[in-house]
């Protein structure tokens, strides 16, 4: 009994530590993080095999939230149930939390310095480019036909003109997809829900994400 508890605690500690190390190394987030996780979890520690890794990728990409946090929760759960998931998520979140905290602490002291302000304006431009790149990648996997193009244009117009809560737009999107696919099937139209590559195989199928 004693022994079991010690083992469990050791596992939780290891989960925490593995993801604590992965956390700050994932600049560029998203799928850059997945490569590091795969190396650590499937390669080095043999916690999971190849087929589990592909499940991991699809679940991490389709659940809400960052892929890194989702992946750590999944691995943690598989190894140590709910306490394992909690330890892994805490591990991956804590380092970035501390980095952001320290960065904002320094920034609040330096924000009056003109050179820092100018550099920050430059960084605003870079981040604008990142947001644009995220939109571009998402558009590439999202806009597969006229209905999806109309949905994207429509949602942008609604946001710009009405100021509705974006949360409702997401909920509407979930319902809309099911309605459109149902309606198309009913009308006997061809339904393609994902972009397919030339070989006819569906591409990754997970949402493409960036940071």
């Amino acid at each position: 009994m004693e022994n079991k508890i010690t083992q469990k605690l050791l596992l939780l500690g290891e989960l925490f530590w593995v993801f604590f190390k992965i956390g700050p190394s994932t600049f560029g987030g998203g799928y850059a993080m997945m490569a590091v996780i795969e190396q650590e979890v499937a390669g080095k520690r043999k916690w999971m095999d190849e087929s589990e890794m592909s499940d991991l990728l699809s679940i991490a990409g389709s659940a809400p939230g960052g892929v890194g946090v989702n992946a750590s929760a999944f691995i943690g759960y598989r190894l140590g149930k709910i306490p394992g998931a909690a330890a892994a998520v805490l591990g991956i979140t804590l380092p970035t939390f501390l980095i952001v905290y320290v960065l904002s602490f320094f920034y609040s002291y330096l924000q009056e310095v003109p050179k820092v302000q100018a550099a920050m304006k430059g960084i605003n431009g870079a981040v604008l480019g990142f947001i644009g790149a995220a939109a571009y990648r998402m558009a590439k996997s999202a806009l597969v036909d006229w209905s999806t193009l109309a949905a994207a244009a429509g949602s942008l117009a609604v946001l710009l003109l009405t100021g509705w809560n974006p949360i409702f737009m997401i909920l509407a999107g979930l319902g809309l997809g099911i309605i459109i696919v149902r309606a198309k099937k009913w009308l006997g139209l061809k339904v393609v829900t994902e972009k397919t590559s030339s070989s006819g195989q569906a591409e990754t199928g997970v949402i493409e994400y960036y940071i």
Partner: peptide, 8 residues
Amino acid sequence: YGLRPIIT
């Protein structure tokens, strides 16, 4: 299928 365009 419906969610991705909204996210875009």
